[in-house]
Every structure is written in structure tokens, then in C-alpha cells.
Design a protein around this nucleic acid. Structure first.
Lengths: 227, 227
DNA sequence: CTATTTAAATATACGCGTACAATTAAATAG
DNA sequence: CTATTTAATTGTACGCGTATATTTAAATAG
């Protein structure tokens, strides 16, 4: 049907306008990628504080303000790093839970891997969960886009299995949210209030997971048979 | 040399040294208090971002750097505000749990009050839990000093009672930590990831509290002992 | 009084994110 | 070619936290 691909700047339906042509989406995207790459490299080499607009620009031989043609804020650049990081922890979780068949065991493995990942990489934690100055829209869009939420899927699957319930049942939704919140709480408390004598992350995670029980054993729950 | 009193300055048993006298501890403390008061007023009138070293200094007709004679960092000033805020939420919790006799009910009231307090005052939450750039020492000292930890006492007491166990038993310690972490996780997740369709704070808190059970009913107990 | 000593207070400067004004680059129209 | 239009890019400036250098204030010694 479509005869030719409109790809670069030339192709689209051009009324042959007058001024300097806009950069094509492809060009913009390429530069965006270069910016993110630079930010990532800078971070890995010199830490979080090395990620600055001026520093990224200098590295790319641009003026600092040029970056704003490609990202609205510094946070928008950081949110690209979140994706990389979330993919990495996702991969670690996948590996950890891979060969486990028991749902509770898998849930513990997933949870411990998730929590340990952040505890062992507190700078990552700060980038992803404590980048202050975040606008409501930035994060909301990021979440809706799915990059963050996808991380939670394994928790849903394993929780449903551990509860012997359907993945989309209200009970599973509640308990999974509870677990996810709980795990983040462990991370947040242990990282931001290290002076307090918290129970070990291991004990906390295990205890939280153990509170996920088959629905039939949940107090006051009318038994719902499914198999 | 007149015999006048060398001001209100502390003149204990000084060997009458040569240079300009140090400010007394009382004077320092008074100025510190004025600074904190100014920061607090500024915050209440114009929000978090109005708390800046330059702004506080201008309000007090000082140079910005003068503040550093009284506080090592801006965060040290903020941590004084934490105390006020923590006392306020503590008071609300006390009121909410005051007339409740049932331990679980009290625990739910405490937890809901605590979580709601922060959810309804997200700016406070940011000040206290997301003031980025915190040095490990700052917070650690603050925690050791006891201001923060005292907040947790009611949770310990009610948890112990709900578990029918001693307040200093390992099981109670673990479960209380789990609850505190969990509550913070709810707050943190709901505040920082508002775009996600979380279960309600109410449901999450209730579910977490309900997972605190008498010791005889947890761990290896296969059976539910209904009363 | 002046000189000296010491602490307090300020001035200056750096890098930060970024708003906004000015400039430059790349196209077309005449 | 020049003029015009439009987008891209850069320059300038603000307020921020705070490190460091400098100045000022308050005491004593001669």
C-alpha cells in the first residue's frame, strides 16, 4: 500500500517552507541518545554529581542550553537512566527466580534480589527514587509509559501463585501492592535512616513475603474455590 | 579601663585572653533559634522553596555566610524543622490512639494517622524524607539524638500488645520494624509514583496491620485458632 | 592613644539548573 | 546576489548552596 517510507527531513508532506528546516525526529532522537549515553558514562566514571547539564554539554561540545532542545529538564535525562537501571535489576530478578518452582521461594528470591540491588547501589537508588524536584507529570508519564510498571509483573505472578488466586483478583492486587510498598519501605528506611538499628533486610523481606498466604488462610476471607 | 561588665558574655574563669571574645553558648543558641524560626515562618508562608540560605539571611539582615557560623549546612537547619514536624505528627497519633483499648485498633489508628499525615502534607514529606544531599552523619546524629526514634515507641507498644509478647522480644522488634518500613513504603510509593494505580492507602495500611498477629498464631502454626 | 590578637562577619567566587534575550544557520523568494 | 523567514544555538543572567579569602569588630598590652 504505502509506496515509500517518509523517513528523513526531506520526505514528509512538505509545503516547501521558508525558514531553516526542523531537525527530523531521527536526528533529534540520535542526539537524545548521545546525551543519555554521555550522562550514563559520566555517572559510571565519576558518580551522580558528575551528571550536570554543563558537564554533559561540554563533553558533547555543545552549549549547556542546547540540551534543552532535546530534553525539557535534567530530570528528563535522568529518567532515561532509570530505564537502563530498571532493566538491569529486572534482569537480575529474572535470573534469581528462574529455576525456582515454589511460588514463595520465587517471591523471596525476587524480593531479596530487588532490595539487595538497591541497597548495594545506593547511588542508583538516589537517582531513581530520590531525584528531588520531580514534577508530578514527569514521573506520571514515565510510569504510564510502562517502563516502571513492567518491573512489577513478576511480583504479581508469583503472588497470585502463592495465594492460589487469580492474578487480577482484588486480593492479589492488594497483597502485591503491599509487598511492593513494603520492599520500597525497607530500602528507603535502611538507606535514609542508617543510624537506626533496623532488623536485617533479609529478615524484613522474608517476614513480609511470609505474610502472603493462600486466600483460604486469610482471616475473615470467605473461601473462594477455584480448583 | 572601665569596670563595666563585658556584656552578657560568659566570663567564667577566663584567663582574660586577648582577642575578640567568643560568642557565648547562650548567644549562639539564641541566634540558632532565630534562624530556625525564620526558616519555619518562611516555609509556612511561601513553601519549601522559600527556605534558602540567602533568603533566611536577608530576613535576619545578615549575610548568607553568617548562617554558617551557627549551622554547618542548610540541612542542619532543616533538621530542626523535622523535629517540629515529628512532634506534630506524634501529637496527632497520640490523640487518635488515645481512647482505643484494643491493640489492633490502636495500631490501625496510629498507622493511618501517621500515613495520612504525610500524604496530606507532601511538602512536609519532602522536607523530612527526601531532602537530598543528606550526609550520612547529619541524619545519623539526628536519629541517635532520639528525636526521630521516639516517634516509633507507640508502634512498639501496640505491636507488642497485639502480639501478646514482650516489647523487647525479637519477634516484636522484627514485626514493628516491618510495619514502620511498610508504612513508609506506602507513603513513599503513593507520593513519588502517583501515576500508578495503587490500592488505597487505607486498604494497604489495614492489610499490613492485620498481618501482625499473636505469636502463637504465626510461624509454624498450620491452624488458625479462632477465639 | 596605637599595636596586636582573636573571633565574627562579609565579600568573592564556583558550579549548579534553567529562564529569557540575542545571535547564528539554513532554507526560500525576489 | 540580498532579503526574509524560521529553527537551532548560544549568551547572559538569576538564585541556589557553600568554599575560601578578606575585612571588620572587640578585646588586651604597651
Amino acid at each position: 500500500m504505502a509506496t515509500n517510507m517518509a523517513s528523513a527531513r526531506e520526505q514528509a508532506q512538505k509545503p516547501a517552507k521558508r525558514g531553516r528546516p526542523k531537525k527530523s525526529a531521527a536526528e533529534k532522537s540520535a542526539t537524545r541518545q548521545k546525551i543519555v549515553k554521555t550522562a550514563s558514562t559520566l555517572f559510571k566514571a565519576e558518580g551522580f554529581e558528575a551528571i550536570s547539564m554543563r558537564r554533559i554539554a561540554k563533553e558533547l561540545k555543545l552549549s549547556p542550553m542546547a540540551l534543552y532542545a532535546y530534553f525539557p529538564t535534567k530530570l528528563a535525562i535522568l529518567s532515561r537512566l532509570w530505564i537502563e537501571i530498571l532493566e538491569e535489576v529486572g534482569e537480575e530478578m529474572r535470573i534469581a527466580a528462574d529455576k525456582l518452582t515454589d511460588a514463595e521461594e520465587r517471591l523471596i528470591a525476587l524480593s531479596m534480589t530487588y532490595v539487595s540491588y538497591w541497597l548495594e547501589r545506593r547511588d542508583y537508588y538516589h537517582i531513581v527514587f530520590m531525584s528531588s524536584g520531580l514534577t508530578r507529570e514527569d514521573v506520571t508519564e514515565f510510569v504510564r509509559e510502562g517502563s516502571a510498571v513492567a518491573q512489577f509483573d513478576p511480583f504479581f505472578i508469583a503472588t497470585a501463585e502463592a495465594m492460589h488466586a487469580e492474578q487480577d483478583s482484588p486480593a492479589v492486587k492488594l497483597k502485591t501492592d503491599q509487598l511492593i510498598c513494603g520492599l520500597h519501605g525497607i530500602m528507603h528506611c535502611l538507606i535514609t535512616v542508617p543510624g537506626y538499628s533496623w532488623s536485617s533486610a533479609n529478615a524484613l523481606v522474608t517476614s513480609m513475603v511470609k505474610d502472603i498466604k493462600p486466600v483460604s488462610r486469610i482471616e475473615g476471607a470467605e473461601r473462594n474455590f477455584k480448583d
